[in-house]
C-alpha cells in the first residue's frame, strides 16, 4: 500500500482499485445536499465510484441513487473506486465525508 493511503484507511483491492470505510457523522446523514455534493465531486474523476451500504450498492456519481441508500448519521459506508485516478478520487471523497459536507461545495 502506498504511503498516504493508510492515513485514510485505504485498502488496495487490486490495481487501480481501492476501498475505504467511512462513517457518516453529519447529523442529517446522506441527505439531498450531501448526496449531490458527493456525486458532484465523484464526477470530477475518471474512475468508477461505488458506494456500498449494507447489502445495497449504488453508483457514487448518481445523487438520486445515493439518496436511496438512506444513510443516516452513524452509517458505515464502503467507498470503492476503480480507475486510473482511483486513489486520488477516494482520498478526495473520504476527505469530503470527513469534513462533514460544509455548505457551498456543490456550487459547481
Amino acid at each position: 500500500m502506498s504511503e498516504g493511503a493508510a492515513e485514510f484507511g485505504l485498502e488496495e483491492m487490486g490495481p487501480d482499485n481501492y476501498r475505504c470505510e467511512v462513517v457518516i457523522t453529519y447529523a442529517e446523514g446522506l441527505h439531498v445536499r450531501p448526496c449531490t455534493e458527493f456525486a458532484a465531486l465523484a464526477l470530477t474523476f475518471e474512475s468508477d465510484i461505488h458506494v456500498h451500504f449494507g447489502n445495497l450498492h449504488v453508483d457514487g456519481k448518481a445523487p438520486m441513487d445515493l439518496l436511496t441508500l438512506a444513510a443516516g448519521a452513524g452509517a458505515h459506508l464502503i467507498l470503492e473506486a476503480r480507475g486510473r485516478d482511483a486513489r486520488k478520487a477516494l482520498a478526495a471523497l473520504v476527505g469530503l465525508v470527513h469534513s462533514g459536507f460544509p455548505e457551498g461545495k456543490a456550487a459547481s
Partner: peptide
Amino acid sequence: LLVGDKNL
C-alpha cells in the same frame, strides 16, 4: 444536481 443525475 439531482435533475442532472446521469443515471436518472
